[in-house]
């Protein structure tokens, strides 16, 4: 019953995003600010994490594919599929929830407990529209971009480690990356990125917006924002895979 009530409250929260809207000019400035916060500040972390994930995936795939009749380019083909379908959009969404989601929740939670949200509401401004909508729009714009960067970095990481350690030659690696490439996987990864960007931003904002209490509760809201976002991302990952990749 509590879960249903919470889901209902979340959808009412989403509905309030679009009532009593502020002007495009106001939102434009806020969205740019949020894009800088969400996107630019996260690039370094994403580049680092995805490069290492790509490198490790290459080494581990090579370790498992030991049969002499399996061509070496299969390693990079496997790394490509893993990266495009799962590592870049889904695993990075977990990193994204930890960095951006917790920050969004903490920011709104602090605004709530210090009555800054009340100050906005009492002026007759829809605080959800003013504070949350720019975060969600920025997340919808920036997360797919981060996923693309992530994918490129992971594949580059694999290339570099293959070349440095001699697991496979650069030409083999590039051949494997291009071998039997299905461009729908890119579309699928971007659909996932948009979905996950929305889920992380909206769930984290929801958790932060309804924080009650003090500093301790702001921390708890951030933790809940991350865990709930991660669960929602994994659930949505399965649903999307079933809907868009299922052979039946």
């Amino acid at each position: 019953m509590g879960l249903l009530k919470e889901i209902g409250k979340y959808f009412i929260f989403l509905g309030r995003l679009f009532t009593n809207r502020e002007s495009f000019k106001t939102h434009y400035k806020l969205v740019i600010d949020e894009c800088l916060l969400i996107g630019i500040d996260s690039i370094l972390l994403f580049v680092l994490v995805s490069t290492f994930i790509g490198a490790v995936s290459t080494v581990q795939t090579a370790f498992n594919l030991v049969a002499p009749y399996i061509p070496k380019y299969v390693i990079s083909q496997v790394v490509r599929e893993m990266t495009v379908l799962e590592l870049a959009p889904t695993v990075m969404a977990i990193v994204y929830a930890g960095k951006v989601g917790s920050s969004m929740s903490g920011n709104l939670g602090t605004m709530r407990i210090t009555e800054q949200i009340d100050a906005i509401e009492v002026m007759g401004i829809n605080s959800i529209n003013y504070l949350v909508l720019p975060k969600i729009i920025a997340s919808l714009l920036m997360y797919p971009l981060l996923v693309v960067i992530s994918g490129v970095c992971a594949l580059t990481g694999g290339y570099l480690v293959g070349m440095i350690t001699g697991i496979l030659a650069p030409t083999e690696y590039v051949y494997g990356i291009r071998y039997l490439f299905n461009d729908f996987t890119i579309t699928f990864a971007l659909i996932k990125a948009i979905t996950f960007g929305f889920l992380v931003a909206s769930i984290s904002s929801y958790k932060g917006y309804y924080t009650t209490g003090g500093a301790l509760e702001v921390g708890m809201s951030s933790t809940k924002a991350v865990t709930t976002s991660v669960i929602a991302v994994l659930l949505a990952d399965y649903v999307l895979a079933q809907l868009l990749l299922s052979p039946a």
Partner: peptide, 12 residues
Amino acid sequence: IGMLFQGGALFD
């Protein structure tokens, strides 16, 4: 309406 809150509620 104008309102003054207990802690000021200034935007950080």
